[in-house]
Design a protein around this nucleic acid. Sequence first.
DNA 1: AGCTACTCCTGGTAGC
DNA 2: TGCTACCAGGAGTAGC
Length: 279
Amino acid sequence: MPELPEVETVRRLIEPDVVGRTVVDAVARWQRTVGGSAGRFRAALVGARIERVRRRAKFLVFELSRSGGCGGAILCHLRMTGRLYVRNQGEAEDPHDRALLDLDDGRRLHFLDVRKFGRFEHVADPAARLDGLGPEPLGDAFTAEWFAAALKARRRQLKPLLLDQSFVAGLGNIYVDESLHRAGLHPLTQSDRVSTVRARRLQTEIRATLAEAIEREGSSFDRFYQTPAGQPGGYQHQFQVYGRDGQPCSSCGATIVKLVVGQRGTHICRRCQPTPRPR
DNA sequence: AGCTACTCCTGGTAGC
DNA sequence: TGCTACCAGGAGTAGC
């Protein structure tokens, strides 16, 4: 499922195709995807010019302008199966395309989403919607000092805490499992019991994991994620634990096991990530 | 405050 | 072979 590295890859590849373009038509094929009626979606977007595409956590923000006022933005979240790609107008649609933008150069931006969990919606004030998100894990605010103190200030299991977008914004199931393994921490460890040294290690490993994944254009472990260029990512070949249950840990040789933590499939090496003491 | 359960969805697959 | 039942999972929400 797309997480920060996949979303950043999509942003980089889609940006040159859409920046500077004006929307000449906007079609919604599934109402919930666009957060309102197809008519309102179209009215809000036709005539708007795409100024830039930035990423905040797992959101893509298409900043818009229009003559005589503020154009708001498109907030796009890929969730599980969302995908963006560009084709020429008149080319075949995919049956799973949920929203389409015709641009003034004859190209068309497709938002495809098999499971319909994703969003591609126009909002007047994107800042208000992104307000509650925690720091970007690759940003300047995500320091080892801040992270160690933030873990101490909470009393939550590490895995659900790291998945909480209001705590740190952009991590998902894959990169949390990978980062915890690299830091030698069990996902059920209570956050305030992580030593400062371990917290610093985890901060380092989160950043390294994400940076390496971006470098390889994300992870494609199933058929869902591919880049806008139609290519799979390459980071799935680097997985140490995710999806590797039953296989040996590349660090110690113990068998990777899968558990459920907070309703999420969770992959660990019991030897590298010792079970925390209860109480 | 933090946990669990439920919802939204569909394609794939396990089980019979 | 063909059917059904179940599962994955990010994020929002409700309830305890």
